[in-house]
């Protein structure tokens, strides 16, 4: 075949493949916006649900999801980063660290409903936190831990080795070296892991099903030991469990969830690019 023709065909195929990846995203967004935008109003976003969720707003679900995501990140980021620092900077490549790395890979493959059952067993029942924001946030936190550890490890490993050598050669201790010459440069990568974790925690239904999510609770949570509504579960409920919900309310809820995740991501991306601006090597 003519090499120019075959090149054209190859590029066309590659372009088509890329298009096919983007297409579903665009279609999903378009459908959700088209069908849901009419439901969005001040009242929808900032008031309590009424009439068994057939009227009123979704404020408790929005706030509930925000609390859960925030709680999960507050729990998982320090823990995950600390574990990653230990694995990369201290433990070396011994049997223990290989075992831990294997465990993390497996943790990432556990289905989310299993996390839900785990959370029910440990936090709700064993620790007697009950079905509460605390239980739900901890469960989500454990679910996103592998993402955070893995991306933090990659971020730490991508910091050039000579930063450590130079710092140690100037009389810094190992901890000072990590604190001043490694962690600051790994921060953008750690942020990336946080972003990925945020998105997952906000969107998952199964882990909150048994640990926190309320079917219908038209008031705001007062403490971390309260149950709360949450957007993904609320969406499931009004789509399948309650008859007579207007279609635009269902799509409107999906739109709010999607926007929330995108906003959280956007905030994290801005934060990350701020840090990355300082990176000069």
């Amino acid at each position: 075949m003519n090499p120019r023709l075959s090149q054209k065909i190859a590029f066309s195929l590659l372009f088509l493949a890329t298009l096919l990846v983007v297409l579903p995203v665009v279609v999903i967004l378009a459908i959700i916006v088209a069908k849901g935008a009419s439901a969005i109003s001040w009242e929808f976003l900032f008031s309590m649900p009424r009439d068994g969720m057939r009227a009123g707003g979704i404020l408790p679900a929005i706030l509930g999801t925000l609390y859960l995501v925030l709680g999960a990140v507050l729990f998982a980021v320090p823990l995950g980063v600390a574990a990653a620092v230990y694995l990369v900077e201290y433990s070396g490549n011994n049997r223990f660290s290989r075992l831990v790395k294997l465990a993390i890979v497996n943790l990432a493959g556990v289905p989310s409903v299993v996390y839900g059952l785990f959370g029910l067993g440990i936090f709700v029942i064993f620790f007697r936190f009950g079905a509460s924001i605390l239980s739900g946030a901890l469960t989500l936190g454990i679910m996103i831990l592998p993402v955070i550890i893995t991306s933090s490890r990659e971020a730490l490993e991508s910091v050039p080795r000579h930063f450590r050598t130079v710092s140690l050669s100037l009389g810094a201790s190992r901890w000072q070296t990590i604190r001043h010459s490694v962690l600051p440069h790994a921060l953008p990568g750690i942020m990336t892991g946080m972003i990925l974790g945020l998105g997952r925690a906000a969107g998952e239904t199964a882990p909150i099903l048994f640990t926190v999510a309320a079917f219908y609770l038209p008031r705001l949570p007062q403490s971390v030991f309260d149950q709360t509504m949450a957007l993904p579960y609320h969406l499931y409920v009004i789509s399948t469990q309650v008859p007579g919900i207007p279609e635009n309310v269902r799509y409107g809820t999906a739109l709010v969830l999607l926007t929330l995740v995108l906003l959280l991501n956007l905030a994290a991306i801005i934060l990350r690019s701020r840090f990355r601006g300082k990176k000069k090597w």
Binding site: F163, T165, S167, S169, L170, A172, S173, H180, S181
Partner: peptide, 23 residues
């Protein structure tokens, strides 16, 4: 020690010089 390649840390001139003192 001065290494074979110049290896400044990715901070300012000033901060490079005072790194050891700060530590």
């Amino acid at each position: 020690i001065v290494f074979a390649l110049p290896l400044p840390l990715p901070v300012s001139i000033y901060e490079n010089v005072v790194y050891g003192l700060r530590m």
